[in-house]
Amino acid sequence: MGFFHFHLRTAVGLERDEIGLVCPNLETAYLDACSAIPMLMAELVGRGHDPSTCSFEITDAVDQLVMEVPFLERVRRHPRPRRAEAPVLSPETQALVNRLDLLTLAINREAAQLQANMDQAARHMARMSTIRHRSDWCFETWSDGLAPVAPADAIEQPCA
């Protein structure tokens, strides 16, 4: 196992990867960099960068450059190393992954419910604003109770 940083070199400069990633070997680090390139290319184009001038600088745990992966490497038509098969997870690890999936689903459901509640609250606030505006009208006593009396110019205005 090795620890690698994936620094991003653009025409503007170097964006350092401060977090890094543990990979079984340099080949896997290379494949991970290649798999990230298409998404990053779209993002860089959106920010006005020319992705053909960009590259990943893969460094080891002591920040020594071990490989440079130009973004054009991903679009060239030549054979690439195959990705190693995914390791088999222990039952404990698989249980944790399953629990994480369930928690993610629960958070997404809660977020959707929160958004629905906020939408409903906004509708109620708009309705209450209309009701409050109408309640500013004057009321005069009639023989059988109170009745609203709209201002003379028919524009809703509060009583003086």
Rank of each mutant, 00 (worst) to 15 (best):
L89N: 01
L89K: 05
L89A: 08
S90Q: 00
S90E: 05
S90F: 01
P91T: 02
P91G: 01
E92L: 08
T93G: 00
T93F: 07
T93P: 02
Q94P: 04
Q94T: 00
Q94H: 03
Q94I: 03
Q94Y: 08
Q94L: 14
A95Q: 07
L96F: 05
L96R: 15
V97Q: 12
V97I: 15
V97H: 01
N98E: 14
N98H: 13
N98D: 15
N98W: 01
N98F: 00
R99S: 03
R99P: 02
R99W: 06
R99V: 02
L100N: 09
L100I: 11
L100G: 07
L100F: 07
D101K: 11
D101E: 13
D101S: 09
D101Y: 04
D101A: 14
L102R: 13
L102V: 08
L102D: 13
L103P: 01
L103H: 09
L103C: 05
T104C: 04
T104E: 09
T104Y: 04
T104L: 10
L105A: 14
L105C: 03
L105R: 14
L105F: 07
A106Q: 13
A106I: 00
A106K: 13
A106G: 03
A106P: 03
I107P: 03
I107Y: 12
I107T: 11
N108R: 14
N108F: 05
R109D: 14
R109S: 12
R109H: 13
E110A: 15
E110T: 10
A111G: 00
A111W: 07
A112C: 02
A112Y: 04
A112M: 08
A112I: 06
Q113C: 05
Q113I: 10
Q113R: 14
L114C: 03
Q115E: 10
A116K: 02
A116H: 00
A116N: 01
N117E: 14
N117H: 11
N117A: 14
N117R: 15
M118G: 02
D119Y: 02
D119W: 00
Q120E: 08
Q120V: 04
Q120H: 13
A121P: 02
A121D: 04
A121W: 04
A121V: 04
A121S: 10
A121N: 08
A122F: 07
A122H: 09
A122S: 10
R123A: 03
H124T: 05
H124E: 08
M125A: 15
M125V: 00
A126H: 09
A126Y: 03
R127V: 05
R127L: 14
R127Y: 05
R127Q: 15
M128W: 09
M128I: 11
M128H: 09
M128T: 07
S129Q: 15
S129E: 15
T130I: 09
T130E: 11
I131A: 05
R132Y: 10
R132P: 01
H133F: 06
R134M: 14
D136L: 14
W137T: 04
W137N: 12
